[in-house]
Design a protein around this nucleic acid. Structure first.
Length: 489
RNA sequence: GGCCCUGUCGUCUAGCCUGGUCUAGGACACAUGCCUUUCACGCAUGCAACACGGGUUCAAAUCCCGUCAGGGUCACCA
């Protein structure tokens, strides 16, 4: 038997990282066993703007490099892969359930049910719908009146439904705790608990790995599986993802929860995959960094935690740094281009000389470049005509007696450095400090702020070198002018 | 409210099934020191947890019961 898993998002507009983790577990499981991973769009209740939302989902999957074997765009033998297009399958299954007597017509109105729900609520008891089957006479009469009806599954009383969950273990519930649930709305649309079973069976899904909020639904679904005569798949309910530092479910209020936000910041998909895999899953007591291949090889449901994990942006960031260290310079240069272009730092087509400069900057930045968008926050001043001064750095490094004088002398010295290269710059600056009796820190720090505007950054000589003599001289002169305009108090 | 799930450092987790090797291990974060012209990297050190209460046992993070806390579900949502 080949393992088949699926991820079935409803197109709501964005990809929650908790959802991505669930998808990842499914994908990993399928790849681990050499099976198939199916992407299905659960849009039974959606009608508008689905297209754009689906596009967003697919984009996220492509970015993560989680390919789907069947689903939107690629099709497959069990299509269509949009629930909104599978109406016939649901109708056929419902007809079978009507024929076998598992299902009955419910002619009640929303008002009637609301009243019962309110009453149950007031009495603080669980609301359970248990309707009586309409008699053939009633059916004839109601149909003549044109009354709409929903289809309800009649839950057999007095038995236990058992879930052998791969993550939660054995979970059981008495059918006495369950009400008769609707499988088809009055309009003829299937409900999740029904559509999902029909699809999972039809698509021959062997492992249903999904969020734990569906655990309670599973009892109903098992009843449907049985009534339809299908073999039960293996269920695995993964705990929810909590907000940073809490046990509350992660929601949009908790900051960056959409995959797109990390994509836009320039995170690496390898880091995201590594992070998400470790969120709720571990191999042993020590391994933190996993390659994609290792994940596929080592992943299993047996080591998925049954308790919730909270999203830890710090850990993601650390992993990102670890993965960034593995990227080649040339790849970083290419990867950084879109961000630079968006910021207006470069044009659409980039000249070779420009690329050389970008490579020099990235190389000088070294491990400081944690995400690709850092090229803007950390290296912008290498590519602009004017710089913005960081007020704190100005105050700390420039607003001191003697700085202007030092800057004047430094500029004079800089003019004479030959060749204008890192090693000669280094010797020259050391000599400058020595002959003037100034500590290196009192030379390097103010000059850094003068030429970059920032108090922190790449190596000092890298900065001087990449910027070039003319730019450095100009920026030092500008800084001296600025200091003169607003003298140190 | 009924039913169901969950509870180890701030966080991710190892250990729990098969009690003793756990004075509870690793990682992130944090703090300090080293390196250093800044920051980052790297290295070293430190801080820090078995939710609570009973019980079983020579022995409990591990087994049992209860309490508390968090989450889910009880829709003609998914």
């Amino acid at each position: 038997m080949t393992v088949r898993t699926r991820f079935a998002p409803s197109p709501t507009g964005y990809l929650h990282i908790g959802g991505v983790r669930t998808a990842l577990f499914n994908w990993l499981l399928a790849r681990h066993y050499g099976g198939q991973f199916v992407l299905r769009i659960d849009d039974t209740d959606q009608d508008r703007h689905v297209e754009a939302a689906v596009g967003l989902i697919l984009e996220g999957f492509r970015w993560m490099d989680m390919g789907w074997d069947e689903g939107p765009e690629v099709g497959g033998p069990h299509g269509p892969y949009f629930q909104s297009q599978r109406g016939e399958k649901y109708r056929a299954a419902a007809d079978r359930l009507i024929a076998s007597g598992h299902v009955y017509r419910d002619y009640t109105t929303a008002e009637e049910r609301d009243a019962e729900k309110k009453a149950a609520d007031a009495a603080k008891i669980a609301y359970r719908f248990r309707g009586a089957r309409p008699t053939p006479e009633q059916i004839t009469q109601y149909d003549a009146e044109g009354r709409p009806y929903a289809l309800r599954f009649q839950v057999p009383l007095g038995r236990k439904v058992v879930i052998n969950d791969a993550i939660k273990g054995t979970v059981e519930q008495s059918t006495d705790e369950m009400g008769d649930f609707v499988i088809m709305r009055a309009g003829g649309n299937p409900l999740y608990n029904f559509a999902s079973v029909v699809d999972d069976a039809d698509m021959q899904i062997t492992h249903i790995v999904r969020a734990e909020e569906h655990l309670a639904n599973t009892f109903s679904q098992i009843l449907v599986f049985e009534a339809l005569g299908y073999e039960l798949p293996i269920f695995a309910h993964v705990p929810y993802v909590a907000a940073p530092g809490s046990r509350k479910k992660l929601s949009k209020r908790d900051g960056a929860v959409g995959l797109d936000e990390y994509m836009n910041k320039g995170y690496l998909p390898e880091a995201m995959m590594n992070y998400l895999a470790r969120l709720g899953w571990s191999l042993d007591a020590s391994q933190e960094v996993f390659t994609r291949a290792e994940l596929i090889e080592k992943f299993g449901l047996d080591r998925v935690n049954s308790s919730p994990a909270s999203h830890d942006p710090d850990k993601l960031f650390w992993l990102q740094g670890e993965w960034m260290k593995t990227v080649d310079l040339a790849d970083k240069v290419e990867a950084v281009l879109p961000w630079m272009h968006k910021e207006g730092l470069i044009h659409e087509s980039v000249h070779l000389n420009e690329k050389r400069k970008i490579a020099a900057v990235i190389s000088a930045l070294g491990d400081r470049l944690k995400t690709y968008s850092d090229i803007i926050t950390l290296g912008k001043y290498f590519f602009t005509d004017t710089i913005t001064y960081d007020p704190d750095a100005v105050k700390k490094r420039l607003r001191k007696p003697g700085v202007s004088e030092m800057l004047v002398k430094f500029a004079e010295m800089l003019k004479t450095v030959e060749p204008y290269e890192i090693s000669s710059l280094e010797t020259a600056v050391h000599a400058f400090a020595e002959t003037n009796g100034i500590k290196m820190g009192d030379v390097v720090n103010p000059v850094r702020v003068a030429v970059t505007g920032q108090g922190v950054g790449p190596g000092f000589y890298d900065c001087l070198h990449i910027l070039g003599r003319d730019v450095c001289l100009k920026r030092i002169a500008d800084t001296i002018a600025m200091l003169a305009a607003e003298p140190t108090s």
